[in-house]
Design a protein around this nucleic acid. Structure first.
Length: 149
DNA sequence: GCCAACGTTGGC
DNA sequence: GCCAACGTTGGC
């Protein structure tokens, strides 16, 4: 999404939207709030990695609790674009930095997402094992909408 | 705890 | 390049 002007550093970029998964017993939304900022490490899947690589500073990211909770709990934003994953020497893997924006007033469950017509194509449903998922603006806003209670 | 879905690996 | 075996993820 978006396009570059190759003749300068000027970079016109549309906002992109994402959803990332975390198992709350490993790294929860509360841990994230406490840290105030984190690098999103541990991605070891090429498709998810490719998604990390095209994230741009300012992109909005929904924070989803997998395995336990099974719900979207908050919104984050990208504060630093992809760089070498500091937890490995393997050059294939990258992280981005994320900062919390705010919790949803009400968590949005996987069940609700599945039941919402606007969200029928979300990879969260179609590709349940992918841990970094692109969303359209409409999908992102639909989830925020559900999170307003 | 089980199992489906899917990615990766390795033998051929 | 195919495919079986295996490992991992994540929902139930």
């Amino acid at each position: 999404m978006g396009f570059k002007n190759p003749s300068s550093e000027f970079n016109i970029q549309f906002m992109n939207y994402w959803l990332v998964k975390s198992e709350p017993f490993k790294y929860s939304w509360d841990d994230f709030l406490k840290d105030g900022r984190t690098y999103w490490d541990g991605v070891r899947n090429y498709q998810a990695r490719n998604n990390l690589k095209v994230m741009r500073a300012g992109d909005k990211v929904l924070f989803y609790h997998s395995n336990e909770g099974l719900e979207v709990v908050g919104v984050a934003k990208v504060t630093k674009e992809a760089y070498q994953d500091p937890t490995t020497d393997d050059r294939r893997w990258v992280v981005v930095d994320l900062e919390p924006v705010g919790a949803l007033e009400r968590p949005v469950s996987l069940k609700e997402i599945k039941e919402d017509k606007r969200l029928g194509d979300v990879a969260l449903i179609k590709q349940s094992r992918l841990s970094v998922i692109p969303l359209t603006k409409g999908e992102f806003e639909a989830i925020l909408d559900l999170g307003r209670g």
